[in-house]
Every structure is written in C-alpha cells, then in structure tokens.
Design a protein around this nucleic acid. Structure first.
Length: 361
RNA sequence: UGGGCCGUCGCCAAGCGGUUAAGGCAUCGGGUUUUGAUCCCGACAUACGUAGGUUCGAAUCCUUCCGGCCCAG
C-alpha cells in the first residue's frame, strides 16, 4: 500500500474532496496539499484562503488524510503574474489559469510531491488521461458540461504520466452525492470562480491597481466618437459590459461590443449587435503551439476541432503552418470575438491535442 | 427679430384626451462559467421642461415662460 503514495492538490471545493475519497477507496496512500499561490494581503479584500482551508481540513479529517500546506506565491508571481501583467499592458487578454496549471499545479506541485515520496499526483479536475503503449493522451471527461481540458492543454507527456484525475468518469451530480454521503462541509458550497487569486467580480478594480488606465475615445467603425472609456486595459474583445454607451439617435437598439483596441492612440472601437461581422473571424494566427503527443506536424492539414474558450463553441478547423513558424487556424464557422492572448485548444474527437495562443486575427 | 419644430427614466424612443406612461441601450442585483468575456434572469419614471387654464378626466387640447433645433435675416 505504501508504494501507492499519491499527493492530491485540494482547494476546499467538493471536487477535490471527493477525489480524495475516491483515491482512498482505491487504496492509495493519500496525502493532501493545499497550495497558497497568492499573498492575500495584496488582494482587494475578501480573503477566501482561510475559509478554503476550513473546508479542506474538514474533508481531510473525515478521511483521515494528512494535510500539507505550501506557499507557492513566489513561483506564481514570477511565472504567471508578471507575464499576465506584461500581456495586459500590451493589450492582450491572457489566461492565467492555464499558466497556473502549467507552471504551478503540474510543475512546482509535482516536484514538491516527489520530494514527499510520491510518484503520482491528483487533482479534482474534470478531465481524463488515457495511456496507450506508454503514450499518454488527454481526453474530455465523462461530464461534458464540466470539461476542463481547455485549461489543461499545455500538459506534456512527463506531466500526464504522473497525474490521476479521479473525476474523469463522474458527473458533477454524482460528485455532489458522494460529498453529501461523506458529510463533507463543502457538499453544497457555492463554486468559487474567477481567477484564483482575485475571486469573483473584482477584476477591473484589481487590474487597475497594477496598470494605469487613461481615459480615451470610444468610436464606431466610421470613426465617429461615441463616448469616453475609462481605460483601454479594462476591456477585452467582445466585451459588452462597462462600455456605458446608451441609446444613440439614428442607431439601432442593440448593445455595443468592443471589436478593436488601438493601444497607440488609446482608442476603443465598438460595434452593435452580438453577431456583428466586425466581431467574427474565420482565420486566427496562433503562437506558442504546444502539442501533447508527437510534434506539431501531426496537427496539420486535417479536419480537427477547436475552441477558443472554456466550454466554448466547437469549431471544425484546419491548421496550417505560416512562414514565420506560427500557425493559421481556419474555421468555416466564424470565431466570435477572439481575443489575442487567449488560448485556442485543439481536439480530435475526445482527445485534446494541445493548443496555442491567439496572436492576431 | 419674424416663421416653423421640439422638450416623456442617465441615453435613444413609443404614446397624440381615460394606459399599471411601451420597448431598447446604459446601470445595478442575481444565475451560468475555475481566465478575460459572452449568455440568461430580475430590478429600474405616481412621472411626462415650467406656470396657469379647458375638461368628469391631460404627457396628450389652449396660453405663459424657460430651454434646444431649423429656416428666414
């Protein structure tokens, strides 16, 4: 039993608590790690870390699992947050949670687990890992509505070989039932959302602490000035909320969406209607392409599927290499409001093949 | 200064004598979502530029004034 030592990363939510329980049932020697990746004194207010820890301790106690607490704030700051800020300052919209999985949850965390004598780690992600003759594949989980492969597409063979996702064949509803039967305090806890270190609903306020926002013009596609924005960094492509443009004479009664940001002139361009052509793009340029298995040639010139956001619309697509070593992804169904900095993730049936960063359109 | 038009929620905008004064946008609150967004649901004018009048009854008719626009000048 002791050679089946596994370290599980826990968050305080039901998913990781139930994952512990499932691993325990499989007679693993389970120990838990609660990662702290942010020093809460830097956040705006709400410190959820303490509260999370209460739930974690509750589950660990009920399962008699040893709990370790680690602080990866420095690693997080250096590997993720600085990059995150850098991208934002360039007008991109990065996805820190993807980087967090790549550099923290499945790198620093694995290294730490190995020091504790475990050769396997687990998390409560909804995703599946399948091994075939020594090659590991990342696949969509049973519960398609909770599919988190989008956030995990940067993992490599080495990482996948060490990970177990206990929830790969469970529906969320089943997980909740198990949590209830185990009497975990977290069983009906509200899901936490938003970037891990910010929490929900505070994004603009948060980002303004790190980036200077200057007011500027809001224009339509004919260069008519429609209003003033509070700062171009507050916004992202496809955004509706917060633009503050009301009804305008001789314009349609449709909401306005950001379709372009002009960093140089600090101008924000908006258009009306969720399906406005200005928001739609059939071809995206992708950088930093990562492929989970094999090399990037394996994804070229064949019909694949991709999505540009978590749980987003699935696009049939073809991928080509560009002359400058980037990739073009073409889709018949246009991508709606693609934002540079966001990730495009590629699939073939149930398999997640990898993905890259949208650079421009 | 003559002539014409117009002033209804933060913004657009219906209503033209009896309506609980449409609707959209914005905003706010909630739901969905381990990024940013999107999306969904809910809230949101006892009040119709002002002061009088007509009428059983006015945002709707008349007059005063205030404000804005257009054409003449």
């Amino acid at each position: 039993m002791n050679n089946k030592k596994i370290i599980i990363g826990v968050s305080g939510g039901v998913d990781s608590a139930v994952s512990m329980k499932l691993l325990k049932d499989q007679e693993y020697n389970v120990e838990a790690i609660f990662m702290k990746n942010w020093d809460e004194d830097d956040t705006i207010d709400v410190c959820t870390v303490k509260e999370d820890l209460v739930y974690v301790e509750d589950a660990c106690n009920k399962l008699s699992i040893k709990l370790h607490t680690v602080n990866f704030s420095d690693e997080y700051w250096n590997n993720i947050f600085l990059d995150f800020l850098e991208k934002y300052k360039k007008g991109h919209t990065p996805n820190p949670d993807i980087l967090c999985n790549k550099y923290i949850k499945f790198k620093v965390f694995i290294e730490y687990a190995e020091k504790l004598g475990a050769n396997k780690v687990a998390t409560g992600h909804y995703a599946k890992i399948v091994e075939n003759n020594g090659t590991f594949f990342l696949e969509r989980p049973k519960d398609k509505k909770k599919d988190q492969t989008y956030f995990l597409h940067t993992l490599d063979q080495n990482q996948l070989s060490k990970i177990i996702f206990p929830l790969s064949n469970f529906y969320k509803s089943e997980v909740k039932k198990i949590a209830k039967s185990c009497n975990f305090a977290s069983y009906n806890r509200k899901e936490s959302m938003g970037i891990c270190f910010i929490g929900n609903k505070k994004f603009k306020k948060f980002i303004s602490n790190y980036i200077n926002n200057m007011p500027g013009d809001i224009l339509d596609d004919n260069e008519n000035i429609l209003g003033t924005h509070k700062g171009i960094f507050y916004t992202t492509i496809g955004q509706r909320e917060g633009i503050g443009i009301g009804g305008i004479k001789n314009k349609k009664n449709l909401p306005w969406y950001v379709y372009k940001k002009d960093l140089v002139n600090n101008k924000l361009y908006i258009c009306q209607g969720n399906n406005n052509k200005l928001l739609l793009h059939n071809k995206l340029k992708i950088n930093d392409m990562h492929v989970i298995q094999g090399d990037t040639n394996t994804i070229l010139n064949k019909r694949l599927e991709c999505q540009i956001r978590h749980l987003g619309e699935k696009h049939q697509c073809f991928i080509n290499k560009t002359t400058d070593n980037s990739f073009f992804v073409e889709s018949f169904l246009p991508f709606k409001s693609p934002a540079s900095g966001q990730s495009l993730v590629i699939y073939e049936n149930e398999k997640c093949l990898g993905g890259g960063i949208i650079t421009n359109v």
